[in-house]
């Protein structure tokens, strides 16, 4: 089976979507043909369109931007829709959406948009996973799945992979971070202050209203 792993982050390197796809790859048996695609800009080349169309399964990984799909990826989904509907394709689509907030459920509308795209492109919808505070998982790159920040990801990923390998559909799954929300907010807010400091800014500078 040919599985297309599509990184839909606007960041070409070091994105959370990339880490989430890398994590998924470790769970996929080696006898499948895995092909990685990076969609970081608003235009797909002819070769990319053809390669994506030749897959049996597509897994999109993307960040939630303002409650939806990042704009560059929308451009590419329009291109893909046009190309995929020109001839019938037997492709099942799965989606992993992460956001910077705590609740994985905040990705619900973005997953719904991807599902709506799947129908417009005449493809089969598989399943979506919405992951809250995805960056916590990205920062724990060397931690094994099922441990530390990745504790809550293990079971949903296992279900997701089983469905993907059988090309079955399933209910969307939502993952919250392992840590309590108040602790995460406290830590993340401290992190912003620290990052501002690295640029010579004080905490109150980060809150100015130009």
């Amino acid at each position: 089976m040919k599985i297309g792993l599509i990184n839909g982050s606007p960041k070409a390197m070091g994105s959370t979507s990339e880490v989430l796809l890398d994590e998924l790859k470790t769970l996929l048996p080696p006898d499948h043909d895995l092909v990685s695609f990076g969609i970081h800009h608003a235009m797909l080349g002819v070769n990319q369109l053809e390669d994506i169309a030749s897959c049996d399964v597509l897994v999109f990984a993307l960040p939630m931007y303002m409650g939806g799909i990042p704009s560059h990826l929308l451009h590419c989904l329009i291109q893909l829709e046009k190309s995929l509907t020109e001839s019938p394709h037997d492709i099942t689509v799965y989606t992993i959406v992460n956001n910077g907030h705590y609740e994985g459920s905040q990705n619900e509308t973005t997953i719904a948009m991807m599902k709506n795209w799947t129908h417009r492109a005449h493809l089969k919808w598989g399943q979506g996973i919405g992951i809250g505070s995805g960056v916590m998982i990205a920062m724990a790159k060397d931690v094994a799945l099922g441990h530390g920040s990745k504790k809550n990801l293990a079971h949903p990923y296992s279900t997701f992979v089983n469905n993907l390998l059988d090309r079955e559909s399933g209910d969307n799954l939502y993952v919250n971070p392992t840590y309590p929300r108040f602790a995460l907010i406290q830590g993340a807010n401290h992190g912003w202050t620290k990052q501002g400091k690295a640029h010579g800014l004080r905490k109150k500078d980060l809150t100015i209203a130009p």
């Binding site: 939806g68 990042p70 929308l74 509308t109 719904a112």
Partner: peptide, 21 residues
């Protein structure tokens, strides 16, 4: 797909500075 067109979504995506970190 139940959301904005690419241009309008691009504008919304760029409103991040409207918020604090």
């Amino acid at each position: 797909y139940g959301g904005f067109s690419p241009f309008v979504k691009n504008v919304l995506d760029r409103t991040l500075p409207y918020h604090q970190p």
